[in-house]
Amino acid sequence: MITRAIEEASKVILGKDHQIRLAMVCLLARGNLLIEDLPGMGKTTLSQVLAQVFGLSYKRIQFTSDLLPADILGVSVFDKDSGDFTFKAGPIFAQLILADEINRASPKTQSALLEAMEERQVTVEGNTRSLPELFFVIATQNPSSQMGTYPLPESQLDRFLMRIHLGYPPAEAEKIMLMGGQGAVSAKDINTIIGPSDLAQLQSQVAQVHLSEAVVDYILRLVHFTRQRGHFLCGVSPRGSSALARSAQAWALIDGRDFVLPEDVQAVLPAVMDHRVQISSAQFGRSNDKASELLLSRVSIAG
């Protein structure tokens, strides 16, 4: 079922199987996704495709520097007819939300979204309203070196289960896209493969995937490695380690297994870890190096 969903999604987003898989892992693991890339790489398309494939209600919020929290959460408006205030729900009351260019908005607005992500409820004018059971945020951000951005602080980055990069498409895929021939399909055209109720069931299955002691030890070794003095600016939080475990479980589920292999952990490791820790430049020359590369090449799998 999931394989078919991936196939369906790859019809639109060509040559990005791995990223689609990771996005689905994120969805299954009830996490939120951060896509970081240059404009025009298909970030928006990916989120549309996901919403379509899973049949989720979809809203898109374009973050700008003048966006206010109320624009996201909604406001109470005075209704002349009833003489009462009625709540006009903001775009956040949807199942899948695309927060486009999140780092263009002010930190105040960013934190409104992030709090909603974390709590799965919003409080507007003293009334607490809960968000839909299925709630998934895909935030996109431009590389922070671009003009007019408020980079997300580490504490907020930590709230995203994964961060992925899309990258340039392979040449053949781009060719098909440009030719606009048979292969090219637009996001609107694809079918819903997994309904929202099936998705909820899959999400609950993730937690059932068996995590053997050997794998847990491997995760602990990875985490401990980041916490050792010298390698990184700061270590991974316990939230980070549970994110790694959950993502690995979801990856195994997508792979059709009911138990986790170290390879699952390794597959999700770059997406889960790279935005959480930063290599300390004092130890390893270039701080641009990915934390995951270091972890994958230095931490032993066998106990």
Partner: peptide, 8 residues
Amino acid sequence: GFCEGETA
């Protein structure tokens, strides 16, 4: 490799 999984 010591960082290589069995399946890989």
